[in-house]
Design a protein around this nucleic acid. Sequence first.
DNA 1: TGGGGCATAGGACAAATGACCTCAAATGCT
DNA 2: AGCATTTGAGGTCATTTGTCCTATGCCCCA
Lengths: 191, 191
Amino acid sequence: MDKLKTFLQTLAQITDKEFEDSKNNFQKVYLKKGELLLQKGKVCKQMSFVNRGSLRTFYFNNKAEEITHCFRTEGTFISSYKSFILQEPSILSIIALEDTELVVIDYDKVQKLYSTSLAWQNIGRLLTERAYIEMEEYASVLNNESAKEKYLRLLNEQGEILQKANVEHIATYLGVTRRTLSRIRQEISMQ
Amino acid sequence: MDKLKTFLQTLAQITDKEFEDSKNNFQKVYLKKGELLLQKGKVCKQMSFVNRGSLRTFYFNNKAEEITHCFRTEGTFISSYKSFILQEPSILSIIALEDTELVVIDYDKVQKLYSTSLAWQNIGRLLTERAYIEMEEYASVLNNESAKEKYLRLLNEQGEILQKANVEHIATYLGVTRRTLSRIRQEISMQ
DNA sequence: TGGGGCATAGGACAAATGACCTCAAATGCT
DNA sequence: AGCATTTGAGGTCATTTGTCCTATGCCCCA
C-alpha cells in the first residue's frame, strides 16, 4: 500500500491517519498476463491502482475492430472511467499486459468516502481532473500529429509499453493501421 | 441565473437554499461577437456557464496553425479547464462566436465553495467527470471515424454550430483541412 | 456603386495511409 | 524437439487526404 499512499499524498493533503483509517477499504488483486480485469458489458465497480505490471484498455468500434484505448503502467490508476462514474455497462475491457498487482477499491466504498470525507472528495476530484487533462492531451495529439509524430511521442512518454504491447495494440492506439506503423518503424530505423 | 440553477439541480442534489446562499459568488458577463473571454498565456481564473450565445476555444499547434479545440453552446460550462484546474497559463483562447451572455464564477470562490460545502465539492467533481467523458468521446471519434463520419456527427450533435463557425474552425476541429471539408460537403450535397 | 478584402468551392497533382496479401521469424504447446 | 499458430515486416495497388492554387461570390465601406 505504500506506493499508493505516496501517490495520494503527492496528489492531495491527506494525513497518515486519514489514510490508515480508510486503508481497509482497499484490497490487493493479482492478475496473470492476459487476464481480464474488466469485461465489456459489465459495470465497472472498481478503481484500481497499479502497484506492479501494466494493463491495456480496449473496445470495439462500429466496424467491430478492436481498438486500444489506453495503456497503464505502475503508479497510475486504472478503471473504465465512464462506466465507473455513471455505473453503466462498460464499453471498455481491461486486460493485463503482464503479471500485475493492483490495489483495488469498490465503487460503494469510494462513494462512502466521498460522502464522509472532504479529503477523499478532494482526491476524487483531483484524480478526475488529471484524467481529464490526460485525455485532452491525447485528443490534441490525435488531432494534430502525423502518425510518425504520434509514434515518437509514445516512444518518448511510454516507451516501456512498446516492449509489452504488440503491433496491433500500438497501431490502434495511435489510430493507424499495422502497415503504417511498420512503415514508420522502417523509416526510423533507417535514420 | 435560473438556467444555471436548473442545470445544477439536474446534475446534483443541491437545495434551493444552498443555491441561493452561494448565488452572490456568480456574476453576469456579456460578450460581443468576436470578443475574447480568455487570451492564451493568461491564467484562466473563471468558470463560465453559457446563458445565451456560443463560444469557441482554440490554440496554436507546433506548426503555428490555429486549431479549434471545442465549441460551446447554451446550457453548458466553458473554461480553459486545464489552466483553471492547475492555475497555470492557458494554451487555449476563448472567443465568442456571437453575442453571448455568461454567468461567471472566479477560481477563488470555487475553491471556497469546495472547502466549505460537500454539495459544491460534489458538483465540481461531477462537472469534471462530465468533461472527462466528453473528451474521451471526442478522442474516440478522432481516432476511429473518417473525415466524413466526423462531419456528420458534428452536424447531428451540434448542427447549430455549422451556421455560426466558419469552414476553417470546423475543419481544424475535425482534424482535417479545408479542402477535405469542402469535398465532404460536396459529397453529401450530391446524395 | 464600385473596388478591396475575405471566405468558400473546387481543380490538379503529390503525399500519406489503407486494404490485401505473402513470407519469414517467433512463440506456444504437447 | 517438432508442429501449429501467432506475429511482424514489408510488397503492391487503391483510396484518402493534403498542398497549392484559382475563380467566384459576398460584404463592407468610402
